[in-house]
Design a protein around this nucleic acid. Structure first.
Length: 277
DNA sequence: AATGCGATCAACCGCGAATAC
DNA sequence: GGTATTCGCGGTTGATCGCAT
């Protein structure tokens, strides 16, 4: 047996809302509220609409203090930063932008912001703005390292946009050190205070684009799905760490960052790096 | 002026989560 | 504890608009 439909599709109107319908819905919600039941609302309000349609119309268009269009540079940066850390959690991203709806942010990202980034016209995740969000690590940093914020600590860092062809040489075996016992993954959750928490999920798998974007590398199609970047800037792929030499070749200012952990000459293993730095 | 096409964005759909019974 | 109902979310669709040809 399939899922019961939320309304009688044959008897509800679909498509764009008329000004009269908008006025009816607005008047009803302002006078009586939703009553905690969107499904029953259209009948009470005298609308031939599905309850879900009413809810969407109210939340995305009619409710007070909604802003449409004209995203600012600051808002761009917030969206990029949070997307790099959370992925397509549009409702959470929108909650950091007063007056913006998840639908608006999603549309803006899909139609404009993504293209801006691909064209290299927008920088991603500086350390300063990364620290503006209430992101905390929820678990033991040794066994369950956090992913975001995954940027080095120096204030002098400028985000880089690297093409895949620039990045790939960093990720070849010639530049990697093997640590076969360690693989990490993470998940992102919200706590009761609506703070973003990251934690290990045990899978050892990350979305490569997401973390690389968080590191300032821009969007690309990287054929890698297992890596970890620690809070101090050590960049790992699968169970290996990228060498300082490799990083110097394609991302000099990041390699020059004094807080970047160059583990190769020191012969450190991953847990030591995480413990010490 | 007519047509084609890409960009935009409002709206819909289906699913999982949360809640009610 | 199980089932039904509702909510909220993210992915997708399709109508509309503006621009190029």
């Amino acid at each position: 047996m399939g899922r019961a439909p939320c309304c009688d599709k044959a008897n509800v109107k679909r498509g764009p809302w008329s000004p009269e319908e908008d006025a009816t819905l607005k008047r009803y919600v302002e006078n009586y509220g939703t009553g905690g039941n969107w499904i029953a609302l259209p009948q009470k309000a005298g609308l031939r609409r599905c309850g879900k349609s009413c809810r969407l119309r109210w939340l995305n268009y009619l409710r007070p203090d909604i802003k449409h269009g004209n995203f600012t540079a600051d808002e761009d940066q917030v969206i990029c930063t949070l997307y790099s850390q959370l992925g397509s959690r549009w409702s959470i991203i929108a909650s950091h932008l007063p007056g913006r709806t998840d639908n608006d942010v999603k549309n803006y990202w899909n139609t404009k912001l993504k293209k801006k980034l691909l064209a290299g016209k927008l920088s991603l995740l500086t350390r300063n703005n990364a620290n503006n969000f209430p992101i905390t690590s929820s678990s033991n940093p040794i066994t369950e390292p956090s992913v975001p914020p995954c940027v080095p600590k120096s204030e002098a860092y400028d985000p880089h946009q690297l093409s895949s062809s620039q990045l790939m040489p960093m990720l070849t075996d010639n530049h990697l050190m093997p640590y076969p016992d360690h693989q990490f993954g993470s998940s992102v959750t919200l706590d009761a205070g609506n703070n973003i928490n990251t934690s290990n999920n045990g899978s050892g798998v990350e979305d490569a684009d997401q973390v690389l974007m968080g590191f300032g590398f821009g969007i690309g199609n990287y054929p890698y799905d297992q890596y970890y970047i620690n809070d101090n800037g050590a960049l790992w792929y699968q169970d290996k760490a990228i060498s300082h030499d490799a990083l110097s070749n394609c991302c000099p200012s990041l390699a020059a960052d004094s807080s970047y952990v160059d583990i190769k000459p020191q012969g450190l293993d991953q847990s030591t790096v995480i413990n010490q730095y």
